[in-house]
Amino acid sequence: MGSILLVAEVQKGRIRESSYELVTLARKLADTSGRDVASLVMGKGVGDLAKELSGKGGGSVSVVDHDLLENYTVDAYCAAARAAIDAVSPDLVLFSHTPIGWDIAPRLAAGLDVGFLSDCFNIEVEDGNLVFFRRVFNGKLDARLTSSSACVVATVQPGATPAFDGSAEGSVKALDVTLSADALRSKFVEIRTAAKTGVDLSKADVIVSGGRGVGAPEKFTEVIEPLADALGGAMGASRPVVDAGWLPHERQVGSSGQTVSPKLYIACGISGAIQHLVGMKSSNFIIAINKDADAPIFEVANLGVVADLFEVVPALTEAIKTAKG
């Protein structure tokens, strides 16, 4: 059998947690199919990180160390990954589905003219064949896919697999890649961190969030905010609400907004796209109110109400005010 190449990601001087999740997945697939595990670490001054990965399940680790890999650019990272793919000849290449992974993995697959699967929450070996599982229609349905190509490139949803925390003997080999600044079609300028805003949802004990189901910006003031106020909590929102300009970005809960874990999270009219769920699913207690009984939000909620939020939420607000006396 061939080998599995996992492309690790270095962030803030460390190997990302999601890369160790790829190790868990790669080792599982290797064990059930007799493949070898190989890894790639790329960056500037990442020799020690490659060594760390080789001792923690990364198998045969290739390391590409280059000044031009200090900051992310599509062309430099693609060139380094392509060199590792050519050197290892894997039949499966794994990336995490992160802003770097989803950016270069499909591009590499197109360059290799091979199959590509994105954002898989699981990969299995069945009768010797790789089977890929991923969500479609924003989490409303799951899909099972296979690929006919000799090599497959896939990205894996962060958090879908536990990170590998054992140790295993591996090796490190430097891989020379010729990169020239002139040949890069894009240039890194800077990372701009999120501006500090007045709303820190992570400190709130109670968050009442509204989604697309709230329907209009004024309904947040009329329906959602009064419940948040009655509970002494903060008002949050899902991405579509912020995209539509109904509430500012500082209210957004989810992977591209704030990650919260209050004592109580009440989701009103939020269907529960994965990017919202990752931002709130670790809340201590979750109540979801939605008119669609099949909404994915009910999969993470503790209590669910299938009803018109415009009936339940104002009545709940009044009842909370009464209960507080």
């Binding site: 992310y72 992160t98 990372i191 907004g257």
Partner: peptide, 9 residues
């Protein structure tokens, strides 16, 4: 991630 932006030319 986390509301940060990467600027590129």
């Amino acid at each position: 991630e986390g509301g940060a932006l990467e600027v590129a030319e």
